[in-house]
Amino acid sequence: MRLISYTVIITGGKGGVGKSLIAATAALILSTSSSKVGLLDLDLHGPSASIILGVGGAPVESEEGLTPPTVDCLEVMSLDLLAKGRPLPLRGESKEEVVKEVLALTAFGSLDYLVVDLPPGTGDELLTVSKYARQSGGAIVVTTPTKLSIAVAAKVVEILASMSMPILGLVENMAIGQADSLSETLARETGVKFLGRIPFDPAIFSDAGRLSRNELLNTRFAASLRSALMNAGFKVE
């Protein structure tokens, strides 16, 4: 990870809030803005980055480790590419080992940004990655306008803060309306920057995984995410 200038972890705690779609699309947006970018899918039990981005290849063995496949200019690593789409049953004790092994073995090379997609929950994946990324990285916390999502996001914010992991901000996905939302209230109360709302886009949720990368980049979803990334301080086109 020492060749990686900055690590962006996409977390949120609650499942189904769109973390994977946000991580994959954010990585695409950054990679089209003249940055060398990698995407690491650490959703060990429900990996979806390779499906969203249509990654067909597998990591290739090299002297440096495992060189991930590239789509357009984006390097994508997912355990799913090694498991070849098979189920990956893992107990807690093995998860930390796997996360460390993937971090150590993946030869991303020199990157401006590594975007990490985390699974729901506040377990091994979040804790291990935060430990390694906190020196030169930040977290984007994803919520939806539901009370259930906010409750878990609040816990994630507390955990990240306790680990001195910088929080770039909170983004509300699947937003409905423009009124002051629970997500904004949580951001205010926790002192976390509110990066913006990504409106609910039925097309993206029904077609995610079927859209080409170019089509994905041209959705309303991607446009809103682009604004959120700019609010977080990223230079994006």
């Binding site: 090694l82 990956l88 093995s94 092994e101 073995l105």
Partner: peptide
Amino acid sequence: HFIPDLLASY
């Protein structure tokens, strides 16, 4: 060989 914990995938 790369990641022994992938065992149960195979």
